[in-house]
Design a protein around this nucleic acid. Structure first.
Lengths: 169, 169
DNA sequence: TGAAGTTTTCATTTTTTTTTGAAATTATTG
DNA sequence: CAATAATTTCAAAAAAAAATGAAAACTTCA
């Protein structure tokens, strides 16, 4: 290998190392904003800037986390449809790639993590309403507060689909 | 006090007790969805269905939390503009009321908690772009990934104001 | 089938976050 | 100004969340 091609290879490696580092940091923060553990962000961040599919223990050793953590993290990412597995000739291990279409990720997240909460919020508000007798004038304060909660969940309910539509990234 | 008015008073107390309970549970969940500690949700939930302003130690004793916790929690809620203080004749203590306009709360939250992250994300992406030499053909994979990240933050940046506008609760 | 390879599970440990409570600080009033 | 009341701060304790690693449970293929 001559000096020129060597230096070019080193440079690409350095670029990818730097991008990987920034990527992991980026996704660790983003995921933690969404309440997901550090390891999940690390794994996704690593995969996001890795062109070839990685096995679980490649992931674990690159990130210096336990295989238990890697297994758990990948499970979470699979459930969010944030990773895909690829078949690799003559290798029985699973090979993971990042799903890089954020629109898809986001819509899974909305449906799985947010909508259930919204539904249980609506149930709860119905329960609150039943608590208050009809036409009771001295309970205005409570009625107004319940009304505001209703508007809040109604708006959120309208918002989520709108959000998903706007997110044609 | 005759039986009739007694029963009516009891009933209102029972109603408010039940609403308070549901409210606390509701906001504990909601706040924890936003990454805020239990005590913050409890305090807001209590205030949300309490017509009169409460002092810090009324809050602490009603919720059976320490005054340290109450102080910390109220500090957080003040910084989110989720509570207001009222002046009460001849009482030197602060009296707290819930800010019940969610639109206002939400917009404070967006500005204080989300926008800063978005800005630092943009900085980071610029840094990533500088990493990659111009016109490098063999680095397509990385360029595409960076492009996707840019679209993500651009979309989020457009989304937040839209969100705030839609949230005319 | 069974042996080797791979992944998951889960009790335990580690780390992080939250709460407590008492001391320090600040504010109020007689 | 001092005495009292109200609030904040912060070190230590408690609780909650996450990571570890070894055993169990799968899978594959020779």
């Amino acid at each position: 290998m001559n000096l020129e091609s060597r230096s070019s290879v080193d440079s690409i490696e350095e670029i990818s190392r730097n991008l990987e580092f920034e990527s992991i940091d980026f996704f660790v923060r983003l995921m933690s904003l969404l309440g997901l553990p550090r390891s999940v962000g690390e794994i996704y961040g690593l995969l996001y800037f890795t062109p070839s599919a990685l096995t679980m223990d490649q992931i674990a050793s690159r990130l210096e986390i336990s295989i238990g953590s890697a297994s758990q993290g990948l499970k979470t990412l699979r459930s969010l449809k944030a990773v895909k597995t690829t078949y690799v000739q003559g290798d029985r291990r699973d090979h993971y790639l990042a799903e890089s279409e954020f629109r898809r990720l986001f819509s899974t997240f909305l449906n799985d993590e947010i909508l259930p909460h919204l539904n249980s919020a609506n149930d709860r508000i119905s329960r609150m309403e039943k608590e208050i007798p009809k036409n009771s004038n001295d309970l205005d304060f409570y009625n107004i507060r319940i009304e505001k909660l209703k508007r809040l969940t109604k708006a959120s309910g309208r918002l989520l689909p709108t959000l998903a539509r706007l997110l044609k990234l």
